[in-house]
Design a protein around this nucleic acid. Structure first.
Lengths: 147, 147
DNA sequence: TTTCATGTAACTTTTTAAGTGACAGGTATA
DNA sequence: TATACCTGTCACTTAAAAAGTTACATGAAA
C-alpha cells in the first residue's frame, strides 16, 4: 500500500498551529506548508480534535492547541493518528497445524511488542516544544549559512 | 498499500528450516506452513541467501542456515528483508519556503531515527535460537492443556 | 446577506507487496 | 539416461491502505 505520512503530517500541523498562531490558520494555509490538499489537513485535524490535541470551531479558521506544547509528546500524536496499529507486521495467516505456523505469531508478537515499546518510549520523551525549538534552531542555522 | 509480512515470514522460514532440517525442505512444504505460495517463499529465500543467512542449491530442496541459530538475530533478518527502510515515515514533500515545511523533515527524521534504533537494538538481542525455543515452549504448553 | 471555512461523505488514484503463471535450467533417482 | 521434481526468476494481476479529489451542508463573521 501507499506509505502513511499521517504521523509526520500531524506533527507538522501541530507545530504550524503553534508557530503561526497569530495568523488566520485555514486548512488551505496549513495544506500549503505540507503540500497536500486542505481536505487531507481537515481530516487529520478531525482526528487530532477527537484525541483532545486541538480545539477547532466549525466555520472559523482558528484552531488552537488544547494544551501547552510542553504537554504534548510525539507519543500523544502517534497514538492519536496510528492508534494501536502494530509497528512490525505479523503474518496472521499461518498454518495452525504446523509447530512453527501454530506458534510463531504469539512468539514473534511478543518480541515485536518489546521493540515497539522501546520506540514509543522514545516518543514519550519528546515534546512538541522540543520539535518547535529544533525547527527554529535549524532555521537560524540555515539563515546563518546564507550570510 | 498492502502491509508487508516479509519480516515475519522470513523469520518463519528460518525457524522452519532449522526445526525441520531432517525433512526435504521444498519451497512448497515451507509455503504450506506459512500459507502462501511457493514463489513467495522462493523470493524471500533469495533475499535471505543474498544476505548470507541461508545456503541453497538450485534444483535441490535442501536449504540450510549459513550459521548457527545462536548467531542469527532478528536484526540480521530485519536488515536483510527491510534494508534501511524508514520505520516511521517522513512526508518528504513539504514546502521548503515555510519555516515548518523547510525544517521538519530533518528534525522529525532525527527523532524517528532514535526511536528506530531503540527498536532495532531490541531485535539485536534476540536470536533465532530464542525464537525456536519459544516456539517449542509454546507448543508444549499447548499440548499440556489438551491433557 | 454574502463570503469564506469547516466537517464529512463518496469516489478515484497511487503505491506497494502478495499472489499467480510460466519457464529455463539444475538435481537426482528409478 | 530419461523422467520427475525443484529452484530461481520474470512478468503480470490482484489486493489493500492511504492520499487526493469533488461535492456539499452548515456554521462564522464582516
Amino acid at each position: 500500500m501507499r506509505v502513511s505520512t499521517r504521523f509526520s503530517d500531524s506533527v507538522h500541523i501541530l507545530a504550524f498551529i503553534e508557530i503561526y498562531k497569530s495568523l488566520k490558520l485555514s486548512s488551505e494555509l496549513i495544506a500549503s506548508s505540507i503540500e497536500t490538499s486542505p481536505v487531507v489537513v481537515r481530516r487529520l485535524m478531525s482526528t487530532l480534535r477527537e484525541n483532545d490535541l486541538i480545539d477547532t470551531k466549525k466555520g472559523s479558521a482558528e484552531p488552537k492547541l488544547s494544551r501547552s506544547p510542553r504537554e504534548i509528546t510525539l507519543l500523544d500524536v502517534y497514538l492519536a493518528v496510528e492508534g494501536d496499529k502494530q509497528l512490525f507486521t505479523l503474518d496472521t495467516n499461518t498454518n495452525p497445524e504446523c509447530i512453527v505456523g501454530g506458534n510463531i505469531q504469539k512468539v514473534l508478537g511478543n518480541y515485536y511488542e518489546d521493540a515497539k515499546m522501546a520506540a514509543l518510549r522514545k516518543f514519550n520523551n519528546v515534546t512538541l516544544q522540543d520539535i518547535i525549538e529544533s525547527i527554529q534552531v535549524e532555521q537560524k542555522a540555515k539563515e546563518h549559512h546564507l550570510i
